[in-house]
Design a protein around this nucleic acid. Structure first.
Lengths: 136, 136
DNA sequence: ATAATTGCAAATGCTTTGCTTGTGA
DNA sequence: TCACAAGCAAAGCATTTGCAATTAT
């Protein structure tokens, strides 16, 4: 069964290898936002000979093709997710690292307005909320 | 003449040395968001014997004391600014790296609401707009 | 066939740190 | 005085890269 990342590779003309297919599948199956180490652990379960350098090269390749997104949240390593259908931002639990995705159209509009008021065309943005769970 | 960072060091009980005084002054006089290399260049003009390790240690010390803020904008090195009186966010020119500060209360409120709706207390956030100048 | 990809280890870039000497309060 | 800071070079960490061997098309 082809993973959706594998599909996108074919559509974008990204050459597929065994390693890339495995990494694609692992990322397609990931619901979270793993870093390269974590991805390497997961792909290693499928093929233990895949080197971490290949994982680095592959996520970079996928990222440049717009197939996966890279996030540099606070705290060191880059984390990846499959490019989503619609844009979303992230709330990071400062205690557990758990990530919740959210969309807020009002904020999106305001960001655009702010940029325009300052004489800029908004090309990209980064919005991350860091919070701690409210216990009830 | 004491720089405002130097003042804050005294208030916070941060021990002052010649090097720290110089770094404090350079940061107080900086209107931009320099990285450690740039800071080291600037302090070197005052005292060429200050090592970059000291600059690293000092900005970290100031940051931990809440006297300066560290930003990890896209593109590698951490950049610093004196802790501002009121919170602001940043718009980064993707062509020049130039940074414009802005405040938008509506966005601030919405962020808090989003976090709460998701069951979180908002502790921190990161909002960065990346744009290109509109030529008129 | 042959241009691209892999694995490995070495190199990188930013940042931190151990150690010895120097210094602020 | 004496705990703390500075300078230097070495170490750390995430990530990238050169190279020889391997592989996809």
């Amino acid at each position: 069964m082809k993973s959706s990342i594998e599909d996108k590779c074919i559509k974008s003309g990204v050459r597929l290898t065994d390693q890339r297919r495995i990494i694609a599948k692992v990322m397609s199956n990931s619901e979270d936002h793993p870093d390269v180490d974590e991805l390497h652990k997961r792909v290693s379960k499928v093929d233990s000979k895949i080197s971490i350098a290949t994982v680095y090269r592959t996520v970079k390749l996928f990222e440049e093709a717009g197939i996966v997104f890279k996030h540099d949240f606070k705290g060191g390593k880059a984390r990846y997710e499959q490019a989503p259908d619609e844009h979303h931002d992230h709330l990071i639990d400062i205690n557990t690292g758990e990530i919740t995705e959210f969309v807020n159209e009002d904020i999106e509009k305001l960001q655009k307005q702010v940029a325009e008021k300052l004489g800029y065309k908004l090309v990209d943005h980064r919005l991350e909320l860091y919070g701690s769970k409210i216990k009830k």
